[in-house]
Amino acid sequence: MSVMHPRWSIRSGWTELPTYVRVGIEQVLGAMIEESIGQQGGFSPRTAERVRTTSGRRA
């Protein structure tokens, strides 16, 4: 029996998003992003971040 091994893609990070996208997310969250942690895995090269705002909110 063969085992399937998924191909993981390298994800882009928070700082690689266009400025207008980062600003829009910060507006929705109500504060600037203070910290972002990239999440591993998946098949998409798009960003998957856990973020913390300057107000302490996490998303």
Rank of each mutant, 00 (worst) to 15 (best):
W14Q: 00
R52M: 14
E16A: 13
A59M: 12
G38D: 04
S2L: 10
T19F: 02
L29V: 14
S44E: 12
P45C: 09
V23D: 13
R57W: 04
R57N: 02
V28Y: 08
H5E: 11
S36V: 02
G38H: 06
S36D: 04
I33K: 05
A59S: 15
Q39F: 02
I33N: 09
E16V: 08
V21P: 02
M1S: 08
V51G: 06
Q39C: 12
R57V: 03
R46P: 00
R22K: 15
V23E: 14
R11A: 04
T47Q: 11
M1N: 02
H5C: 01
R11T: 02
W14N: 04
L29K: 07
M4S: 03
M32D: 08
E26D: 06
T53I: 08
E35I: 15
T15G: 06
G56C: 04
M1D: 10
I33Q: 02
A59E: 07
Y20E: 15
S2A: 10
I10V: 03
T47H: 08
I10A: 04
R46T: 15
V3K: 08
S55H: 03
S44Y: 01
G41V: 07
E26A: 03
E26H: 11
S2W: 09
T53Q: 00
I25K: 01
M1G: 08
E26L: 07
G56F: 04
V21T: 14
V21F: 05
M1F: 01
R52Y: 04
Y20C: 03
E34A: 15
G24R: 09
T54V: 04
A31D: 15
E35S: 15
G56D: 04
G56Y: 00
V28S: 12
S9W: 07
G38C: 07
E16I: 05
P45N: 08
S44M: 09
I37E: 06
I10H: 07
V28E: 13
V3N: 03
W8I: 00
E26V: 09
G30N: 06
R7Q: 03
P45W: 09
R11K: 07
A31F: 06
T47M: 14
L17G: 01
I33T: 15
V28L: 09
I10E: 14
M1H: 05
W8F: 09
S55D: 12
P18F: 01
I25R: 01
Y20D: 14
